[in-house]
Amino acid sequence: MKNFNFYAPTEMFFGKGEIKNLPNLISRYGKNVLLCYGGGSIKRNGIYDSIHKLLKDCTIIELSGIEPNPRIETVERGIKLCREHNIDVVLAAGGGSTIDCAKVVAAGVCYEGDAWNIVTNPSKIKAALPLVTILTLAATGSEMDPYAVISNMKTNEKIGTESQYILPKASILDPEYLYTVPKYQTAAGTADIMSHVIENYFSTEIDTFVQDKISEGLLEACIKYCPVALEDPENYEARANLMWASSLALNGLTGCGKNQAWSCHPIEHELSAFYDITHGVGLAIITPRWMRYILNDKTVDKFVQYGENVFHIQNTGDKFTVANEAIDKTEQFFKDCKIPMTLKELNIDETHFEKMAEDAVKFGGLQYAYVPLNKNDVINILKESL
C-alpha cells in the first residue's frame, strides 16, 4: 500500500428532512446565494419551494438550465451572476452535473482569466466561494469529492478538474429526494457508482485488503438495491443505500494507497464530448468490454477475487472461467437494469474513434492505468462496444 493523505471534510447531513439545516449552513457564509439547478425537476418535487421558504431572509440569484454534461458557457454565465450580485455562497440543488458546474463557478469567481483555464489546469485554482449541495441523484459522488467535469462542445472536449478548494463545505442527502428519479437515471447513476468503485478496485497494489473489502461491499449494495429502486421507486432503504454508496465510492476512501490513472472514465468522457450521452450509460457499455480486453494471466487473479466476493461465484479451479463469468454477470446486471449496452443503440459509429482514442490517452493518462492502454487499444475497446 502506498502512502496517502485522506481528506474528506465535507459535512454530511443524511436522512429525511435534513434540509432543515440549510438556513444555518448558509448563514455561516452570508446572505447572497447563487442557486444552481438543472432542468427544473427541483420545482416539480418541491425542493425549490423548500429552499426559498427556508432562505426567505436571503437574496437568491438563480443559475438554471445546467446541462447533464455541464457546458463551459453555463459556468461562465454563473461566474458573471456571482460577480454582478456579490454572491457569498453557492448552493447546488441537483445531481453531479449541477454540482460540478457549481464547483467551477465557485472557483471561477476567484480567477481572473478564462474559466476554461481552471478546467484544463487545476493548479490555477487558488480559492473558491463556499459551496453547499442538496443531492437529488445518486451517481457521481460530487457531493463529497474535489472533482468536477466540464464540457466544451466547441472543441469536443470533456475534461475533469480537481482541487481541494472546490470540495463542498456541506451536503444535504435526503433519500426521499430520489423517489422521483426516473428508472433510466436510477440505473445509469448506479452504473456510475459502480464504475467509480471498479476503477479503484482493479489496481496493481496487492496489499489493500481494507480498501478492497469496502469496494466489494459498495458493489454488492448497488447490485442488491438498484433492482429494488427500479421496481419500487419509493423504497427508502434502497434509495438510502444507493445514495450513501454514491458518496463513499468517490470521496477518496476506496482509492487510498492506490496511485494510478483510471481506464473507463477517460474513454467515456470522449463519447460524451462528441455525442453528449448520459455518462453512466457510456460507462456501462465500456466497462465489460474493457474488462474482457485486459483479462490476461497477470490480471486474472483480481477478476477471480471480484467474481468470488462480489457475485459469489464458486471457484471450481479454472481461473479464467470464474473471471469470464464475473464479467458476464457485470454486463448482464446492466442489461437487467435496462441500460443500452451497445454504442449503436445510441447512434454512435466509428466516425470519431481515432480522435476520441487519441484524446482519451492524451487527457486521461491511460499509459499509467491498471493495464496501460494506447490509442489502438482504445479504438479496439470502442469497436468491441459497437
Rank of each mutant, 00 (worst) to 15 (best):
K20M: 07
D359F: 11
E354G: 03
A360K: 01
L253H: 11
R239K: 14
K383C: 09
C101P: 02
D276N: 15
I313V: 06
T208F: 08
K56L: 03
D145E: 04
V89P: 08
N69L: 08
V181I: 12
P146V: 02
G78S: 04
T321L: 12
P122D: 00
A323Q: 06
G317M: 10
Y179N: 14
T140Y: 03
E270I: 05
L25N: 09
E67L: 13
Q367C: 04
L373G: 05
T351P: 06
L386A: 11
I60D: 01
V89M: 06
E308S: 08
K80Q: 13
K80A: 12
S142M: 04
L167S: 10
P372A: 02
D192I: 06
S203M: 03
L386V: 10
I150V: 05
I285V: 13
P175D: 14
I267F: 01
S163P: 08
Y368L: 13
L137E: 00
K20T: 06
T155M: 09
V281Q: 03
G17I: 06
D212C: 10
N259Q: 13
M12C: 08
I172A: 07
Q260D: 04
I277V: 13
I99G: 02
N69C: 08
T186I: 09
E354W: 06
K338P: 00
V228K: 14
K43V: 00
Y37G: 04
S50I: 07
P340R: 00
I223L: 14
I198P: 08
G96Y: 01
M356V: 09
V149W: 03
A148M: 04
K224T: 13
P340L: 01
I125R: 00
Y111I: 05
E384Q: 15
G282H: 07
L242F: 03
F311K: 14
K302W: 01
T120Q: 14
F333N: 04
P182A: 05
K335M: 08
N241I: 09
G317L: 07
A92R: 05
I47Q: 07
Q211I: 01
D145F: 09
N259K: 15
I150A: 02
E354V: 09
W244H: 14
A139N: 12
T161I: 05
I134A: 10
E11I: 12
L230W: 00
R83G: 12
I166H: 03
L283M: 12
Q260K: 14
A229Q: 06
C58N: 15
E220M: 13
R28M: 09
N32V: 05
E231R: 15
N32A: 11
I42Y: 00
G160F: 01
N309G: 05
L343V: 02
F333R: 00
L271C: 08
